[in-house]
Amino acid sequence: MTKEKEKLLEIELKIGKILRAGVFISSAVIIIGLAMFVFTGYSGYSGTTYPRGLSEIVRGLLEFKPFAWLMTGLFLLILTPVLRVLASIFAFAKEGDRMYVIITMMVLAVLVLAIFLGHTGA
């Protein structure tokens, strides 16, 4: 195996580890939130209210509100592919492949824009 192929394989293995870790961590947080909800029967919020912003979610985490834990797990799950794109940018930069760095940065920009627009409800 050539040196370049070894580098590519190493990079792909690292990216795979990032994806597995992201899914594992987000799943664990979701399971914690779900268990808290099942055992208490209470979401931590009254009626149809729920945390809408990052500060409210963090406050809910610190107060051990089940719904905040569930939302954090989902946020981490959504963040996992974004981390994969970031890792790919660094991998392509390390390889010296400028075209793929630019393309991957455009993909990252679209992801960030979609997350922002989804958050604002636009």
Score class of each variant (00 low, 15 high):
T49Q: 15
S26T: 02
L54S: 05
A114L: 15
A93R: 13
L9T: 13
L111I: 08
P81Q: 03
M99K: 15
T120F: 10
T2G: 13
A122L: 15
E6W: 07
V23W: 14
S27C: 10
S88E: 10
L79Q: 03
I102F: 01
G22C: 08
A93P: 05
T2C: 05
G118L: 06
G60I: 12
I18R: 11
Y100K: 13
F39R: 10
G44P: 12
T104E: 01
V112T: 08
S55H: 08
Y45W: 15
L117N: 07
M1P: 06
E56M: 06
G22L: 11
K5D: 04
L34S: 14
T80F: 05
M106F: 09
V82L: 11
W69N: 03
F90T: 01
G16P: 13
L54F: 15
K17V: 07
L70G: 00
Y50H: 09
F37K: 15
V112G: 00
G41M: 08
V112W: 06
T104D: 00
L61P: 09
G118T: 06
D97I: 07
K3L: 13
V101N: 00
Y45P: 08
G96Q: 03
A35P: 05
P51E: 07
V107P: 00
G73D: 06
G16N: 13
S46P: 09
V107H: 02
